[in-house]
Design a protein around this nucleic acid. Sequence first.
DNA 1: GGTTCAGTGCAACCAAAGGTTGCGAAAGGT
DNA 2: ACCTTTCGCAACCTTTGGTTGCACTGAACC
Lengths: 116, 116
Amino acid sequence: MSTAVDDELWSAIGDPIRRTMIDLLLADGPGTATSLSRRLPVTRQAVSKHLAVLDRVGLIHAEPAGRERHYQVDEAQLARAVAQLSAVGSTWDARLRRIKRIAETIERHRTNNQGG
Amino acid sequence: MSTAVDDELWSAIGDPIRRTMIDLLLADGPGTATSLSRRLPVTRQAVSKHLAVLDRVGLIHAEPAGRERHYQVDEAQLARAVAQLSAVGSTWDARLRRIKRIAETIERHRTNNQGG
DNA sequence: GGTTCAGTGCAACCAAAGGTTGCGAAAGGT
DNA sequence: ACCTTTCGCAACCTTTGGTTGCACTGAACC
């Protein structure tokens, strides 16, 4: 159902700050800890820690450029993460449908047997 | 992009234990803290705390039954959560596609201008 | 009815994660 | 050369997930 790798990806994108960071990197292109921190409600150091987490799970990678470090999204890895999201989503969705169908079936049986 | 309510839902389903708990409740029907803890790698008390979190965001609700507390998934709320998952997923997916398209366009221009 | 047992809740305690401040080091602009 | 900017590291605090221990309560059993 869920592997250790999956959990790492999930916990990486589970944090709202990190999700927003990915959003920003996707929308505005590569950025640094400082540039991202200017658009987030946390300090540069906090952003830096989040970048390290995202880097560790491979969702982003850094490119040193002089005194700056440019981070950008790893598209393949993010695509994998998106796939996992939709996988869990569709699993739950399917189970919800099944439960609903069963509930309706039971209701129908009751109606038939007890005449309403 | 992401509201406070969204973040609550996300952080609720961001935890792997809590995701598994929802899976179990969906698969096996209503359960108690003790019954869930038997199928999870954590103690009953930890499960109980997770149940409290899920209850607080409305993803599950409890039904006292004698000395037991039966928890079950709130289908409507879980459906909302699933919708949020797929929303974020499709947003990222769309941006990835756009980036890919732009990259291909640039590549095509380079090929046209520099003759390969 | 009293004893025993299973399920809960509460409190104390611990470790890890997210966040902050402070500082020193390195690259760039003037 | 000097000042600015960006970064990384270390110390510290708070929240969160996890544990153990204990007291309480509903149900079963004699």
